[in-house]
Design a protein around this nucleic acid. Structure first.
Lengths: 193, 193
DNA sequence: GTTAGCATGTAAGGAGTTACATGATTTT
DNA sequence: AAAATCATGTAACTCCTTACATGCTAAC
């Protein structure tokens, strides 16, 4: 369950959920969401689209002839099966769902989900980050016993990283609180975009 | 030039540069440096060590029999060729050297480098991050022209990420300033660990 | 007595990149 | 006249993970 390749598939489904797009444009938007370092290549995107076509998650829209280049651009839209898969993946709680990319993609499409799912994703991410912090702090204690060689730069690197994670935890806590406030305002909300 | 697998090789060389270690212990230290999400598997580490052995970058130290487990642990140390390779990689300015992992590893072993190299790495990373920020800001302007659908969550995600990158840029700037101050104090410094 | 940690390794497979192939149009 | 952008696609390769195989000791 929860293959790794699902993260890109989820992003494609999410983007097409907002309207039909062709491959080239999809890649640009994808890179905006994945942002930071990762630049998805065509050699990865086009085969993924082909695969999703085969699985009937998306279909070709009656192709607009050709605007700029000689070759026609192929416009895709989600099928009903694709929409179902999108919602399934958004709500899924697999162990991969909290990694940086997977979390970022889910967060990006939060508007298309309900409050319950959002809370689950946000809290899951926070728990994951707190586990990491606990692990690092455990390591630090272990090192205090037998002084491993306290390297100035190595320590500074860890300090900066711990701070960044702590900051994200606070950010998540604020968001979780904001979602809970909404939850209180309306007992049952019509939240599905 | 600058294959991707060199990042782990560099980390191994850096750790062994501080003293001989066996595979199991190497993995633990590696995960401390790579930290955050990435957990290097044995299926990746042991073949890498074998490969580095073949390339004569490391050698087996006269194996300590066996402390806890039945099987002997194999202790490695760097060769002269390995040390040379370590310094070569640390100073290298290839396009991969500024990615998160590659930068983190180089930073972690800064104590084993000279001031010139440290400045090159820090400034390179900062330039890379500033390019990213410029790209994102360009995208934002492009979107203001034809309003793409301003999604609350998507905007919040980008805001948070931009802030994190801006924070790292400030961190880098402080470090660069600190290194420059040292540079001024001593015209020619004996900085090589 | 069962779980966690120590310790090394192999085989199969997944997810992605790089390099290649092709070619028109717009900007510099 | 060159470079960038538009637009799609394939083949080879790389790096890494997962799952498997093996077995001992310490802690709970």
């Amino acid at each position: 369950m929860a293959r790794r390749g699902e993260t890109i598939e989820l992003a494609v489904l999410g983007l097409l959920h907002e309207g039909p797009l062709h491959g080239y444009e999809l890649r640009k938007r994808l890179n905006l969401i994945l942002g930071w370092g990762r630049l998805l290549s065509y050699g990865s995107l086009y085969p993924t689209l082909k695969k999703m076509l085969r699985e009937r998650l998306i279909t070709e829209v009656d192709s607009v002839p050709a605007p700029v280049t000689g070759r026609p651009r192929i416009v895709y839209r989600v099928t009903d099966a694709g929409t179902a898969e999108f919602h399934r993946l958004m709500a899924e709680v697999g162990p991969n769902a909290w990694e940086d990319d997977a979390f970022g993609i889910r967060f990006n499409f939060f508007s298309s989900t309900n409050l319950e799912t959002r809370l689950r994703v946000l809290e899951g991410r926070r728990t994951r980050l707190e586990e990491r912090l606990a692990r690092v702090r455990g390591d630090l204690e272990g090192e205090q016993k037998r002084p491993v060689r306290s390297d100035h730069y190595a320590i500074e690197l860890r300090r900066q990283r711990v701070e960044a994670v702590e900051r994200e935890v606070r950010w998540l806590s604020d968001l979780i609180q904001a979602e809970r406030d909404r939850q209180d305002e309306r007992g049952t909300a019509p939240q599905t975009s």
